Simulated scan of single mutants.
Amino acid sequence: MNNSRSLLCVCFCAGLLGALANSSVTWLAAKLGLPQWCGVDLVPQWTAAWIYPRLLWGGLWGLVFFMTVGSPRSRTQWVRKGLWVSVLLSAWQLFYIYPNRTAFGVLGLGLGTLTPLFILFYNLIWGGFTGFFARAFWGRNR
């Protein structure tokens, strides 16, 4: 298989695992009551209907991450690049998804004033794990 296609698959899988880490932290934080304590109404239930779309979207955003490491010359600082892509993901969620696909408005402020900080934090987890797993799966000798 071509190296680019192999890396594309690695990035998708890393994005999926990043989404699993993101979802786990989101669910655990809600279980501990952290968002509610801060006045944010982000209380997911760990169900297949909640987790499966998140995993799929995490993998698709992993393909966006691939654009940052796809060229052999750009295969450095994988975690940092994952964090930058997660900022783009947060902007997409806060400025497109919330106002256009939900009733929570721009920045998801209908869920609480600190919602953007929680979204950014959760997505930074996705980016860090995605960069870490992509680097780990790809290896150093390629």
Rank of each mutant, 00 (worst) to 15 (best):
residue 126 W to G: 02
residue 17 L to V: 10
residue 132 F to V: 02
residue 29 A to I: 01
residue 51 I to W: 06
residue 24 S to I: 01
residue 54 R to W: 07
residue 57 W to F: 11
residue 112 G to C: 08
residue 44 P to F: 11
residue 48 A to M: 04
residue 107 L to W: 10
residue 22 N to Q: 09
residue 13 C to D: 03
residue 74 S to A: 04
residue 78 W to T: 06
residue 129 F to P: 05
residue 140 R to I: 01
residue 39 G to W: 05
residue 103 A to C: 03
residue 57 W to L: 12
residue 32 L to N: 03
residue 113 T to N: 08
residue 105 G to K: 09
residue 142 R to K: 13
residue 139 G to P: 12
residue 77 Q to G: 07
residue 120 L to E: 00
residue 101 R to N: 12
residue 88 L to N: 00
residue 94 L to R: 10
residue 84 W to N: 00
residue 112 G to S: 08
residue 57 W to D: 01
residue 96 Y to W: 14
residue 5 R to P: 00
residue 28 L to I: 15
residue 115 T to M: 04
residue 96 Y to E: 03
residue 98 Y to N: 14
residue 60 L to R: 04
residue 34 L to S: 04
residue 100 N to Q: 09
residue 19 A to L: 03
residue 115 T to R: 13
residue 6 S to Q: 15
residue 89 L to M: 12
residue 100 N to W: 14
residue 30 A to K: 11
residue 92 W to Y: 15
residue 47 T to Q: 10
residue 6 S to N: 14
residue 128 G to H: 04
residue 84 W to Q: 01
residue 76 T to L: 01
residue 38 C to A: 14
residue 93 Q to T: 15
residue 57 W to M: 14
residue 12 F to N: 11
residue 37 W to R: 07
residue 2 N to K: 11
residue 121 F to P: 01
residue 134 A to Q: 14
residue 108 G to H: 05
residue 94 L to M: 12
residue 62 G to H: 07
residue 124 L to G: 05
residue 18 G to W: 00
residue 85 V to D: 03
residue 7 L to M: 14
residue 90 S to E: 02
residue 19 A to Q: 03
residue 51 I to N: 04
residue 111 L to E: 11
residue 108 G to V: 09
residue 140 R to N: 06
residue 132 F to H: 03
residue 70 G to L: 02
residue 113 T to L: 10
residue 50 W to D: 06
residue 23 S to K: 01
residue 1 M to S: 13
residue 55 L to Y: 09
residue 93 Q to P: 00
residue 76 T to I: 02
residue 130 T to V: 11
residue 30 A to W: 08
residue 89 L to F: 15
residue 13 C to T: 15
residue 55 L to R: 10
residue 37 W to V: 03
residue 18 G to I: 00
residue 132 F to Q: 11
residue 82 G to T: 02
residue 60 L to W: 07
residue 140 R to H: 05
residue 135 R to E: 15
residue 82 G to R: 02
residue 129 F to V: 15
residue 104 F to S: 08
residue 10 V to Y: 12
residue 83 L to A: 10
residue 55 L to V: 13
residue 125 I to G: 02
residue 134 A to C: 15
residue 62 G to K: 01
residue 130 T to R: 05
residue 93 Q to F: 13
residue 111 L to D: 10
residue 32 L to V: 03
residue 132 F to D: 00
residue 23 S to D: 03
residue 78 W to L: 05
residue 108 G to P: 03
residue 128 G to Q: 07
residue 84 W to R: 00
residue 65 F to Q: 01
residue 92 W to N: 12
residue 2 N to T: 06
residue 134 A to V: 13
residue 139 G to V: 11
residue 67 M to P: 01
residue 63 L to N: 05
residue 3 N to E: 15
residue 90 S to G: 02
residue 74 S to H: 08
residue 138 W to A: 14
residue 25 V to C: 14
residue 110 G to T: 04
residue 14 A to Y: 10
residue 50 W to P: 06
residue 86 S to E: 01
residue 103 A to V: 08
residue 136 A to N: 04
residue 66 F to D: 11
residue 3 N to I: 10
residue 85 V to Y: 02
